[in-house]
Amino acid sequence: MSSRGDKRADLLRRVVDHLAEHGIADLSLAPTAEKLGTSKRMLLYYFGSRDALIAEAIAASRPDIADLFRDVGDTDELERAAWQLWEAITRGRQQRPIRILFQVLSLAPTQPERYAALAANAVTAMVEPLVPVFRELGFGEAEARSRASLLISGLRGLCQDRIVTGDEERIEGAAGTLIRAATAVENRKE
């Protein structure tokens, strides 16, 4: 017999798949539950609310930046890890789920009461783990924050552009330019 945690984890995986395919803008718990083969009551039991469900779906579906960049010891390893992140969000296991994050980021400016804090937390959760990596490579605090933001937000924006335009060649080139710029040691500001 599976535990409550196993059932919840399985349901969360199904929720992530559902939201990546159908979006969050018109998300209503009862129809979502029906499509997932469960009940609104069970969604509320496991997640508490619609907004908490979306927050957990984002957390479960975003790349683990701390893990991807854990063993970075020099700028070559930093560049390799950045390419691994790019691969994950464009062709790997985060390819579909990252669309949930894009939806929240897109809704935050027009529905700030519902999505602004969620969007800000999602961005922070991806940028902050990268700041110490840049610091360890000798970048000062401000430059480490700037480069972490450039890398994460830049790749996210390029990924969204790739989804919208389908122009893989242009975007792949832009990703390379961005990764090289964000990881270069030349012109390092202390």
Rank of each mutant, 00 (worst) to 15 (best):
R4W: 04
R4K: 08
R8A: 04
R8T: 07
D10Q: 13
R13G: 09
R13F: 03
V15A: 03
D17R: 10
D17Q: 08
H18R: 08
H22A: 10
G23S: 03
I24V: 14
D26H: 14
S28W: 09
L29D: 02
L29Q: 02
A30W: 03
P31F: 04
T32C: 10
A33T: 07
K35M: 11
L36H: 05
R41C: 07
R41Q: 15
L44Y: 10
Y45Q: 14
Y46S: 04
G48F: 07
S49R: 01
R50P: 03
A52F: 00
L53E: 00
I54T: 01
S61M: 05
P63Y: 05
P63F: 03
D64T: 07
I65S: 08
A66T: 10
A66I: 11
D67F: 13
L68Q: 10
V72M: 00
E77P: 06
E79V: 06
R80N: 11
W83E: 13
Q84V: 12
L85M: 06
L85H: 02
W86P: 09
E87K: 13
R91S: 15
R93S: 15
P97N: 04
R99I: 04
I100W: 01
L101A: 12
Q103C: 10
L107K: 04
L107D: 05
T110I: 10
Q111G: 00
E113P: 00
A116G: 01
L118G: 05
A119C: 06
A119M: 01
A119F: 00
A122P: 06
T124Y: 13
V127S: 12
L130F: 10
P132S: 12
P132Q: 14
E136Y: 11
L137Y: 09
A142N: 11
S146Y: 12
R147V: 01
A148C: 06
S149H: 07
L151H: 00
L151S: 02
S153M: 11
G154Y: 00
G157I: 01
L158G: 03
L158I: 04
C159Y: 02
R162E: 13
V164T: 14
V164R: 14
V164F: 08
G166A: 09
D167S: 12
D167V: 05
E168I: 12
E169Q: 14
I171Y: 07
G176N: 06
L178H: 02
R180P: 08
A182Q: 09
T183Q: 12
T183F: 01
V185L: 15
E190F: 14
E190L: 15
E190Y: 13
